[in-house]
């Protein structure tokens, strides 16, 4: 059991321990789909949705199924995440085909998105209950979206600026991420 208040869990997951900038979770989409603000925003929203579902599923598994078999945790979590992503993929393809094309490979890749799997593991390690888990998931999802959108807007702007040829691409993206992460450290004293 964990006795943190809901607000501190939410706030900590969103900015202080931002999944992308402080814990390095979900870096693949962070590098991959952060070229356009609009796509980044949609990816973030899709992430919030999957994260919340994962949190629900992980809580359910922990409480009712895995009580006596903690060693099966990693295997059962990954199956749950994989099936959830599959379902979300089918739903998105059906109701928002444009979004489906924009997200491309990064939607199925959510299975191997550390953020989603990491959420299930962190939630378990910290012993969050049902409500705490949901709040944690939404906070983490909003944090991911925030990081993605910030990154995308900086990259959109930097496309027009004069950058040395060797610095273009991943190197620059990483340095920008580093500076963003530094900025987010400023939130550390808040909690």
């Amino acid at each position: 059991m964990n006795d943190q208040t809901l607000f501190s869990i939410f706030f900590s997951a969103m900015v202080v321990n931002n999944f992308t900038l402080a814990l390095f979770l979900g870096l693949c989409p962070f590098m991959g789909v952060s070229a356009r603000v609009e796509t980044a925003l949609r990816m973030g929203l899709a992430n919030i949705f999957v994260l919340t579902l994962t949190s629900l599923a992980a809580w359910f598994l922990n409480t009712y199924v895995l009580e006596n078999a903690p060693y099966l945790r990693i295997i059962s979590f990954i199956i749950v995440v994989a099936s959830l992503v599959q379902i979300v993929e089918m739903v998105v393809k059906k109701i928002a085909p444009v979004l489906f094309r924009q997200l491309g490979i990064f939607l199925p890749l959510m299975t191997t998105n550390c953020a989603i799997f990491g959420l299930a593991i962190f939630q378990t390690n910290r012993g969050y209950d049902f409500m705490q888990g949901i709040v944690f998931a939404i906070g983490a999802g909003l944090g991911l979206t925030l990081a993605l959108v910030l990154m995308a807007s900086i990259r959109e702007t930097s496309e027009l600026s004069d950058i040395p040829a060797i610095a273009k691409g991943t190197g620059l993206t990483l340095i920008i991420a580093g500076s963003l992460s530094l900025a987010f450290m400023g939130f550390a004293g808040l909690l």
Partner: peptide, 19 residues
């Protein structure tokens, strides 16, 4: 040793390789 340093260090290593 803080998270930001991870990003910066990898960024610099990759820039170095680019050069």
């Amino acid at each position: 040793v803080l998270p930001a340093g991870g990003f910066l260090m990898l960024g610099f290593i990759i820039l170095g390789l680019g050069v």
